[in-house]
Structure formats: structure tokens, C-alpha cells
Design a binder for these strands. Structure first.
Length: 492
RNA sequence: CGGGGCGUAGCGCAGUCCGGUAGCGCACCUGGUUUGGGACCAGGGGGCCGCAGGUUCGAAUCCUGCCGCCCCGACCA
């Protein structure tokens, strides 16, 4: 067990917070609700960006950048969206400070520098983007517009948690405009598939694809699709959303185009996003009481080499081998760290790199030099094996693949175990209370019932799975007829 | 916004009840011995005790005001 970190069973929430800090991913900043993402944490984000950005480009999207500030009148143009975010908006009201005449060296807000119109710090960018699209779109020939932006947004949350919910966070937001409803819906679905593929292939995180109920829908959207993941404490986490906006924003910002028949039509829209919250998901889904477990495809460091030695002479001989191994692996495209610090003992380094979740560790000492071997340890299972040096170049890449796959399989079987079908409200409450996880149950489809269940149990409908099969049943709460099961859970 | 807690070395804390001029662990620096699972010994450096005012011969400690942070709740796409 890692030093200074409680185990998951002792205190899951605290385990998470401490792990984030001790593994050097992020820390609380001097600004309330905002975090500092440290280099090691940021490099995981960079890996995610890299993979996602390629997937976006491969599906025809391009990147652009829109302003951080949104004039209040522009922000409120799409009423539902504005209303939904109103409670958590930060505002810029002044543009100048001045010296405080009463306290030397201090600054006060210059009352003469009040803005004519307040600026909203974007909680999301639909408003500014659609007001821009209006200028870009006249004809069907201007469509579709397929733009993504990597940006920060601010949502003034009352309670924050590193990565999972902070006042400012990093994300990407795609905003597309289309000539037809069908095309926009296809885009919404396509991006959901992209997110699901990213989660499963790169994060080794199995996700449920589904649609949100009316209560949970993005304000301003006609339909919200999502991917939902299961964390080790049995709580669900929304890992990404893709929204079909209909013509809501086109109406609000008067974005019309001439179709082939020369008739004016309103543009159809989508938006979709994932955020640094994914790092929280990654940690909570895979890591253990010894520290992080990072899937190889997102690990900033794939392999760490730890030397074991007594004398300077031994250190030199071990280093020579270690550098050669590192060089060969790097040639294959792997990120390799040779931890040649002579200020820390091997045992310390083992623990430290385990805390940081490096998938594979190679230890090499005098004994190995004599035998032509190394000790290879894998982070996910903590198994060690002695390996011939000449096998490293083929065995380590294979091992990384195995680890990626194993982490996924483990998360998948956990989720399967943590998904329970229930057919009565009594059973529902019992499972929720004793076991947690996803609960698959019939629901009458009304917002009222969902609200009642939430009030009584704190569980919400995470999604209506896309692959839910038609099955006649009755709502566990109201007893009214239902045609398919939905997934309930306690959620982050 | 309600309830609770906390601000003392880089981090974690004791000292506050009962006032006497600041201490422990980790980290850090130096030297030595160590090095295949979180080393050990010796020496050393580091503090507007959150801020401001008051009481007192004397305040980390008592009083007043302020600021900040954390936890629980409400809130949360």
C-alpha cells in the first residue's frame, strides 16, 4: 500500500484525492475551485488530446478558436441554454483597476470602468460560435461546418474535486452545422461512436452508449447522447456527451441558408465534448491501493528502467546496458525513462514508479549482467519475470499490449458484475444501498417518476442504452407499462 | 447560502484550555556507511505562529474585527 494514501476500502474519496496529489497529477491552486495540472498529469491530457484530435481530423473536422468572453445579450439568446447555465456563470463587469487612494500599493476596481455590457466567461461556446456561424453561412454550399476547439471553460461550481469537477477546466468542444436534420443526427451519433472508441481503445474503459432522459439533457439540445462508465466504488461517471441541437441555435441566432431550390431554411446543429474529467475517470476505473494504473496507450512513460548497483563501477556497467535497452525500445516508439538517480535506493524507485502507474518496469543489476537477463515487472498485476536481454525488444511491446487488454477486461468484468437487473422498487433500493453499480430497470418514461426516484434514493437515470432491447414490463416506481429497461446509478 | 472544522518551517502536525519569547515527523543541505522492495548514523539550515487592532511588563496562546481554506449539506449537462 502506498504511503500516506488510504486504501480504496477505507476511504474511496480520500484515496482518489491523495492519489492525484501524490502521483503528481494535479494540486489545488491558490484560486478557489481551480486546480494546477502538473506536468505528469498534463502529459496524460496531451496523450488524450493527440488521440482524440486525430480521430476528429479523420472524421473531417478542423480546429479553430473562439473567444473566452461572451456578451451577456448574446449568451441569453438561446433561452434554455442560458437558463441552464445561469447559476454558474462568472462575469466580467469592469475593465480597469486603479491605485487605492487610501492604501498605498493596493488596487481597487475603477468604478468609472464599468462595462456597458457584462461579459460572461464561457461555460460553453454555443452562443459565440453560432453568432459567428451566422456570418459564415448563406448557402447550402457553405455546409456542413465541422469545427472543433480545444479550450478552457468556467463553471462556478460550489463544490469541486480535482479533475472531476473544477471551476475552470480544459476540454474540447465540437460545433457543427448541417443542411439537414438527418445529417446532424448522423454527426451526433458518429461523434458518440468516436468517444466510445476512444474510451475503450485508449482508456481501456468500457462504456455504455446511450441517450439522456429529458431531466439530464443538455439545455438547448433536442437530444443528448452520452457514454457512461462505472467506477470502482460503484458510482457512474459521464465520460462524454454528444448533442443534437436541432435548429434551436439557428433560430436563436438567425442562421439560415438557401437550399438548392432557393428557399431559406434554418441550419441544423450538433455539439459534443469531453474534458479533463476523463483523467479522473481513468484513475477511478483502473488504479489500486499502490497507486495509479495507466493504460499503456495513454501512459506518459511506458517503461522505466531501474538500475541496481553498489559501486561506481557497477553503476557504469549497469548503465551501459540500461541505456542500450532504452535506446532500442525508443527506436520502436516507446517512451522510456532510465531512472539513474543515485540518491534513491531501488526499493524507493519501485514504489514511486508504481505510484505513478508506469506500465512496465525493468530492473537491471550486477546479477543480471552476469546472466544476461533483466527483471521485468508489470504494473497491472504486479507480476515479475526474469527475461533474457535479447527478448526485451519483442517481449516488452507484447507485454504492453497484454496490459492494455488486461486492464480493459478487468474493467469490463467489473462493470458486468456491477450491473443488476431489478423488477421492483424494493429490490432497487436494496441493490442501490448494498451493492451500487448500474441498475437496469423499467421506467415509465416520465420526468415525474424519474424525479421522485431521485428524491427518494438519490439515484438518477444515467442513460437509456442505445442497445436496450424491446421488452414489455412495468415501471418499478409507478407500475405503468414500459417497453425497455434504462440504467440507473449513483453518479459523479 | 446553511452546519462543522482549520490557518504554526516546503508538507503533515503538537503547543492555545492554564500568557513567559516556538517544537516534532517527513522533506531539504553536508559528511560517511549503504543500494535486488520505500536505508542508517552524525551534523546543519529554514518560522511577519493567516491579517489588523486591543488587553498585558510580556501574546501562537486572552478579547474584537477581517481574510482564506477544507469537510458535510443544498446545487451540479
Amino acid at each position: 500500500m502506498a504511503k500516506g494514501i488510504p486504501t480504496r476500502s477505507e476511504d474511496y474519496a480520500q484515496w482518489y484525492i491523495e492519489l492525484v496529489k501524490q502521483a503528481d497529477l494535479a494540486e489545488n491552486s491558490d484560486v478557489r475551485g481551480c486546480m494546477v495540472i502538473k506536468p505528469y498529469g498534463y502529459s496524460i491530457w496531451e496523450k488524450m488530446q493527440q488521440a482524440l484530435d486525430k480521430m476528429f481530423k479523420d472524421t473531417g473536422h478542423v480546429n479553430a478558436y473562439f473567444p473566452l468572453f461572451v456578451p451577456k445579450s448574446m449568451f441569453e439568446a438561446e433561452e434554455k441554454n442560458a437558463e441552464g447555465f445561469a447559476k454558474e456563470c462568472a462575469l466580467v463587469t469592469h475593465y480597469r483597476l486603479k491605485n487605492d487612494p487610501d492604501r498605498k500599493g493596493k488596487l481597487i476596481v475603477d468604478p468609472n470602468a464599468k462595462l456597458e455590457e457584462e461579459l460572461v466567461v464561457r461555460p460553453t461556446s454555443e452562443a459565440i460560435i453560432w453568432s459567428t456561424y451566422k456570418k459564415w453561412i448563406q448557402s447550402y454550399r457553405d455546409l456542413p461546418i465541422l469545427i472543433n476547439q480545444w479550450a478552457n471553460v468556467v463553471r462556478w461550481e460550489m463544490r469541486t474535486r480535482l479533475f472531476l469537477r473544477t471551476a475552470e477546466f480544459l476540454w474540447q468542444e465540437g460545433h457543427t452545422a448541417h443542411a439537414t436534420k438527418d445529417e446532424a443526427i448522423k454527426e451526433t451519433e458518429q461523434m458518440l461512436e468516436v468517444y466510445a472508441a476512444f474510451a475503450e481503445e485508449f482508456m481501456a474503459l468500457p462504456v455504455i452508449k446511450g441517450r439522456k432522459s429529458e431531466n439530464e439533457r443538455f439545455p438547448g439540445a433536442l437530444d443528448t447522447y452520452c457514454i457512461e462508465a462505472m467506477m470502482q466504488d460503484g458510482k457512474a461517471l459521464q465520460a462524454g456527451t454528444s448533442h443534437f441541437l436541432g435548429q434551436n441555435f439557428a433560430k436563436a441566432f438567425d442562421v439560415k441558408f438557401s437550399n438548392k431550390e432557393g428557399k431559406l431554411e434554418e441550419v441544423w446543429g450538433t455539439s459534443w465534448g469531453v474534458s479533463t474529467r476523463l483523467i479522473g475517470a481513468l484513475i477511478m476505473a483502473h488504479s489500486d491501493d499502490d497507486g495509479l494504473i495507466i493504460p499503456p496507450k495513454l501512459a506518459p512513460i511506458h517503461v522505466v528502467i531501474v538500475p541496481v548497483f553498489r559501486s561506481d563501477d557497477e553503476f557504469a556497467r549497469v548503465s551501459e546496458k540500461a541505456e542500450a535497452i532504452a535506446k532500442d525500445l525508443r527506436k520502436q516508439g516507446f517512451s522510456v525513462k532510465y531512472d539513474n538517480r543515485d540518491t534513491q535506493k531501488p526499493g524507493f524507485k519501485f514504489a514511486e514508479w508504481e505510484l505513478k502507474g508506469v506500465p512496465v518496469r525493468i530492473a537491471i543489476g550486477p546479477r543480471d549482467l552476469d546472466n544476461g537477463t533483466v527483471e521485468v515487472a508489470r504494473r497491472d498485476t504486479k507480476e515479475k519475470q526474469v527475461m533474457k536481454m535479447e527478448d526485451i525488444n519483442t517481449a516488452v511491446p507484447a507485454l504492453l499490449d497484454t496490459i492494455q487488454q488486461n486492464i480493459y477486461n478487468r474493467a469490463l468484468s467489473f462493470r458486468t458484475d456491477m450491473t443488476t437487473k431489478v423488477d421492483s422498487f424494493e429490490e432497487f433500493k436494496k441493490v442501490l444501498n448494498d451493492k451500487g453499480g448500474f441498475i437496469s430497470a423499467h421506467w415509465d418514461g416520465t420526468a415525474e417518476t424519474e424525479q421522485k426516484i431521485k428524491e427518494e434514493t438519490k439515484a438518477t437515470i444515467r442513460c437509456i442504452p442505445l442497445d436496450a432491447k424491446e421488452e414489455a414490463g412495468v415501471c418499478i416506481y409507478s407500475g405503468k407499462p414500459s417497453s425497455k429497461r434504462v440504467l440507473f446509478a449513483m453518479a459523479y
